[in-house]
Amino acid sequence: MSGTFRFLDDIAMADMAFEAEGDSLSALFDAATEALLHSLADPATVTPTWRRTLDLSEPDIETLLFEWLGRLVYLKDADGVVFHRAALTLAQEPDGSAWHLHADVTGAPVDPARQELRSDVKGVTKHLYAVTQDGHRWTARVVLDV
């Protein structure tokens, strides 16, 4: 089952916040990524002409999700793009010392005439940031600075 996300009203009045959920870590990462992509532009209106593959490694899952979302914000500005899709693969070191993320991201240069643009997210914040597990259910709460 894939993950889901919803935007939160009450915890970041001047900015944006979302909660992502999934029944696996992969589903959680997919849902959180979708939430960020939808914050920037409607992915359905972004015809992919741009592509990047990225590999990130962090010692824990909280840091990995935070750094991954931050990297998408960086790419948005550095390459001047909005995103269509991100295909993610998660893996943990056998000894548990690190988590790895491989991402295949597609998108297109910003084009207001063709894309439904939304908020110019400036960054991912640590305010109320949390990744939690309840049985098989993973949840992330993320506040975006706009």
């Binding site: 500005d77 550095a78 400036k122």
Partner: peptide
């Protein structure tokens, strides 16, 4: 370098939000 790459093309732009 991340900051430089984000900012080098943005001189003279408004941004969004408020």
């Amino acid at each position: 370098d991340y900051a430089i790459e984000r900012g080098i093309n943005q001189l003279g732009t408004l941004g969004s939000g408020n």
